[in-house]
C-alpha cells in the first residue's frame, strides 16, 4: 500500500446521497481475478451511455474538476460489501473520500486499501461543496497527522476522527500483514518469554 500523509489537491464534487457500491462499480465488472483495472469502470453507468460514449454532464467527464479527493453526499458506499468499490476508487486515482456519513463495510474496505474516508458534519460538507462551486480549482489540504481537512481558499479547517492503528497503517502504507511484519521484534521477544510451545 502507498503511504498517505499530506495531500494538497483539487477535488471532484459528487453531491448525491446514498451512493451505493453497485453504482461505484456495477456487478458485471466483478469477474476479474486481480485487483487492477477497476478504475476504468468506476461509476460506469453514470459515466457512460449504453453506446459507451461519455455522459456529458457527469462530473468525471467534466474537465473543470479533477484531483485525488472525492467529495460525496451523505451515506456514501452503502449496499453490497464488495471491496471492488474501494479498488475502483483507488485505481481511478482517489486517495481521499469526504462525506457526512460512510457505510460501515465500505469504510473498512477503503482503509484496508489505502483510501482515507473523512467524515465531517453536514454543515462542513456543505461549505466544501460551496467552495468548489465558487472556484472549481479550489485546493484542499488533508493532513493525516493533524487529522485536519482545510479549504485552502478560505483557510477554513475541519478536524476528523480516525483510529490510531488505522492512522498508523495509512501513514506507513501498511496493510495488516505489513503491520504484523513490522512488529517482528516484539513477536520474537514474546516467543522468548513464552512458557510452553
Amino acid at each position: 500500500m502507498r503511504p498517505l500523509n499530506n495531500i494538497k489537491s483539487t477535488a471532484v464534487p459528487l453531491p448525491i446521497e446514498d451512493v451505493d457500491t453497485d453504482q461505484i462499480i456495477p456487478a458485471r465488472f466483478l469477474k476479474a481475478l486481480t485487483r487492477e483495472g477497476f478504475g476504468d469502470n468506476l461509476f460506469r453507468d453514470w459515466r457512460y451511455n449504453n453506446d459507451n460514449t461519455p455522459v456529458d454532464n457527469f462530473v468525471l467527464n467534466n474537465d473543470l474538476y479533477s484531483g485525488e479527493i472525492l467529495i460525496a453526499g451523505n451515506n456514501f458506499g452503502c449496499g453490497s460489501s464488495r471491496e471492488h468499490a474501494a479498488w475502483a476508487l483507488g485505481d481511478y486515482g482517489f486517495r481521499v473520500v469526504v462525506s457526512s456519513f460512510f457505510a460501515d463495510i465500505f469504510k473498512g474496505n477503503a482503509l484496508n486499501n489505502g483510501i482515507l474516508p473523512i467524515q465531517l458534519t453536514a454543515d462542513e460538507l456543505d461549505s466544501i461543496f460551496k467552495a468548489i462551486e465558487k472556484n472549481p480549482k479550489c485546493k484542499f489540504e488533508v493532513d493525516l497527522k493533524e487529522q485536519s481537512f482545510t479549504v485552502m481558499d478560505t483557510e477554513e479547517a475541519f478536524s476528523f476522527e480516525i483510529g490510531s492503528y488505522k492512522k498508523m497503517c495509512l501513514q506507513n502504507g501498511y496493510d495488516d500483514i505489513d503491520y504484523l511484519i513490522s512488529q517482528k521484534d516484539k513477536i520474537e521477544a514474546f516467543e522468548n518469554l513464552q512458557i510452553m510451545y
Binding site: 483510529g163 490510531s164 492503528y165 516484539k186 513477536i187
Partner: peptide
C-alpha cells in the same frame, strides 16, 4: 497477546 492496538489484539499462534 503480543501487543494490543486500538482494542485489537496481536494474538500469538502456537500451531
Amino acid at each position: 497477546i503480543v501487543d494490543s492496538i486500538d482494542g485489537t489484539d496481536i494474538l500469538y499462534i502456537d500451531q
